[in-house]
Design a protein around this nucleic acid. Structure first.
Lengths: 234, 234
DNA sequence: CGTGTGATTGACGCCTGTCAACGTCTGTGG
DNA sequence: CCACAGACGTTGACAGGCGTCAATCACACG
């Protein structure tokens, strides 16, 4: 019978991954470790829905989660991916708003839930943590600003190339240069902000141009330099 | 001879406008009031350039400032406007990065400069201020996420209508329903993320449809309901 | 009066979204 | 074991939104 050993320990987590919790005192960390509620969730499961109040946030011990907004005609716009060590859902707690995104498991995940009151208490009592968290939000804001500029000014072709490179930096390649995140064509389209068919056509163009190789959802990155050029990154 | 009376007092400012400083202690406020360096800057003046390190941030006592990124071929993408009571340039300080935007005066402004070290000290020492600031950044992030979804999914026509409504909410109308911010057609295009010519054509369409009226840069909002419909806001 | 910046209009064509049809694969139930 | 449904991927046809280019106008300013 599996039990306690399944629940990840915060102490181990902050050693293995860089997390926001690295500046906590031993006591604070122990408190979180005691209070948190962990659960294993399978691909496809929705962790929270947008326009809801969430009374805590999640820390990802394993797996991948996509955060997205639902726009016109229910078309989803993917805003961000979270992987192990990342936290999700904290924005709406801190801004005291409803969540502006939904979160869905893309790759089976172990999620640890920490209550809003704990988060607020940490921010109030540990100024190093507050600064660290502030830094995180500000970085995300900077990235969002970049993305606004890209979507507003670049062509779909440029954006798709750029997204492939961003995914590469975020999720690495395996020894065969295969991107370590599995997305449907539709999900790719929902990051880039285009139609599924456009993604399909452009991906096969990239393939003919020997920049990538395709095998179902596996995307092999062959020529980073060429992709960078297509993406129009200086 | 004008002198001290020209320098705005922080105490007055927080009474007149809602600012981030409202949770400071009397001592902290006095400290800022003493330390700050204020300057009057005319339309067109660039306050800071992107990709630079800024060693402080600005609080706007009067006027309007646009924050923008420079994208492909130097085309600017306007990210945000700041008006009296707003602060600009704090993101890069908190995230310890280079500034990701430039800031330019659009309407003659009185700007107060506060050093980065003061900001960091306040965050460390005053947890209410830290929370307030966190809330501000998180709201901005939420708005950025919304805008990403809009640009990715809506047509230029929808976005222009939406931008007009956003500007209305931000800068109000005078008694004749004229928008209280003066922008060139190009600037409007750089918010929406489109070509100047497209903005011109769509604006005159909106005018024919009796939703707005135009007189040079003055935009009169005639039919908010119709604009909302065009903007596809639910 | 010349110069420059911004606004406007027209012509043109490509990028990209939409629609439709079809192929592929997986899992399920009879 | 096979039929079938459903999700996902692919391809083609087509049209129209919107960007680009160029010419002209309006207005302010030195």
């Amino acid at each position: 019978m599996k039990n306690v050993s399944d629940i990840p320990s915060c102490e181990e987590c902050i050693i293995k991954f860089p997390t926001i919790f690295k500046h906590l005192t031993a006591d604070e960390l122990a408190e979180i470790n005691y209070e948190k509620k962990c659960s294993f969730q399978k691909r496809g499961n929705v962790i929270f829905h947008e326009n809801n109040r969430i009374n805590g946030f999640y820390c990802l011990n394993k797996g991948i989660v996509k955060q997205y907004k639902t726009g016109i005609d229910g078309k989803e716009q993917i805003i961000r991916f979270a992987k192990r060590g990342d936290i999700i859902g904290y924005r709406s707690i801190l801004s005291n708003e409803l969540s502006c995104t939904s979160a869905k498991v893309i790759e089976d995940a172990m999620l640890c839930f920490i209550s809003a009151s704990t988060l607020i208490a940490l921010v109030k009592n540990n100024s190093n943590f507050a600064l660290e968290l502030m830094q995180l939000v500000c970085k995300e804001l900077g990235e969002a600003n970049n993305y606004i500029t890209d979507i507003a000014q670049k062509s779909v072709r440029e954006r798709l190339a750029e997204v492939l490179l961003l995914l590469k930096n975020n999720f690495e390649l395996d020894k065969d240069h295969v991107l370590q995140i599995s997305l449907t064509r539709e999900e790719l389209a929902n990051i880039v902000g285009t139609a599924t068919e456009s993604v399909i056509r452009l991906l096969s163009e990239f393939k003919s141009d020997k920049m990538i190789d395709l095998d179902g959802r596996k995307i092999k990155i062959l020529d980073i330099h060429a992709l960078t050029k297509v993406a129009n990154i200086y």
